[in-house]
């Protein structure tokens, strides 16, 4: 695989999709496919077979974003050096235009819990996460993008806002951000703040990529709305509106449609990406 050709070293300011193997043939056959794709790093850590063959072929056709879901950057314990080595091997091989991970934890001791678990926003968390981002960036020898979480609850001990926390992280580590607009909508609904106020306080100058995706609606013990970041439905109209408002603040960016559960046919996903295109300046 030769990553040096064309302008595949950066994601275009255009719609992309979260790639699913069942779309391989349709995506390759589409005369007007999306302009870039994103894959979950952990699905491409085998030694060979179909996943790596598909990724190799796709990386010849599309700029690639590799999105890690398993590193546990916010974990109280040290980063898993075996997993860091796997990420480095994958990035060295696939030469993605972008690598991103989550502001979350998922590993505790020797257990991996397979979910993005929340963090209190304190100086102690900040120092720990900054050190782990430094370690990741020096291992991969690249600047990473960190994704803002979907929150269902808050920590009493938090004494920083999420946006102040992220701003200070960028200051300390020079990392960039993957701004997930659906997560902003979900968190602001769940915790009762204004999404636009959050976006205005967000360090938008460091945003390298934007996500949108679907969510489900539930409620908490008091009957207050509780939105779940499920990636199993079309993007909500209010999230589309918030994406427009986000792009007005950030300027044009690579925007990804995520659909990970109950994955629809390629045509449906392609239509969601077309809605992104309509919001991006030509």
């Amino acid at each position: 695989m030769d990553g040096s050709h064309r302008a595949f070293d950066r994601l275009p300011h255009a719609p992309g999709i979260g790639y699913k193997p069942q779309h391989f043939n349709a995506l390759r056959a589409d005369p007007h496919p999306v302009e870039w794709i994103e894959v979950h790093a952990e699905n491409y850590m085998g030694d060979g077979g179909r996943p790596l063959a598909q990724l190799s072929a796709l990386s010849e056709q599309f700029p690639l974003s590799i999105h890690g879901v398993g590193l546990s950057i916010g974990g109280e314990g040290p980063l898993d050096t075996d997993h860091l080595a796997r990420l480095k091997k994958l990035c060295d091989w696939a030469k993605p235009a972008s690598f991103s991970e989550h502001l979350a934890w998922s590993t505790h001791g020797s257990e991996f819990l397979n979910d993005l678990l929340p963090l209190p926003y304190t100086e102690a968390t900040l120092a720990r996460v900054a050190a782990q981002i430094d370690q990741l960036q020096s291992t991969l020898n690249r600047r990473i993008l960190l994704e803002n979480p979907s929150s269902y609850l808050a920590f009493e001990e938090s004494d920083l806002s999420e946006t102040d926390f992220l701003t200070e992280l960028a200051h300390r580590t020079s990392c960039g951000f993957l701004l997930d607009v659906n997560n902003v909508f979900v968190s602001s609904t769940n915790l009762g703040y204004e999404p636009l106020a959050y976006l205005r306080a967000f360090p938008t100058e460091h945003v390298g990529e934007i996500h949108v995706g679907g969510h489900d609606a539930d409620h908490d013990d008091q009957g207050a709305p509780l939105l779940i970041d499920s990636h199993g439905t079309p993007v909500d109209n209010q999230v589309w509106q918030l994406l427009g408002e986000t792009l007005a603040l950030t300027g044009p960016k690579p925007v990804l449609v995520e659909w990970d559960n109950d994955v629809p046919d390629w045509a449906v996903l392609r239509a969601e990406a077309a809605r992104v295109a309509a919001l991006l300046p030509a």
Partner: peptide
């Protein structure tokens, strides 16, 4: 130490992670 946005106990909100 877990709460909703207004300082009420997290309750069912924690169950989202449990379920996930």
């Amino acid at each position: 130490g877990l709460c909703d946005g207004k300082g009420q106990s997290a309750g069912r909100r924690y169950a989202v992670y449990r379920n996930n």
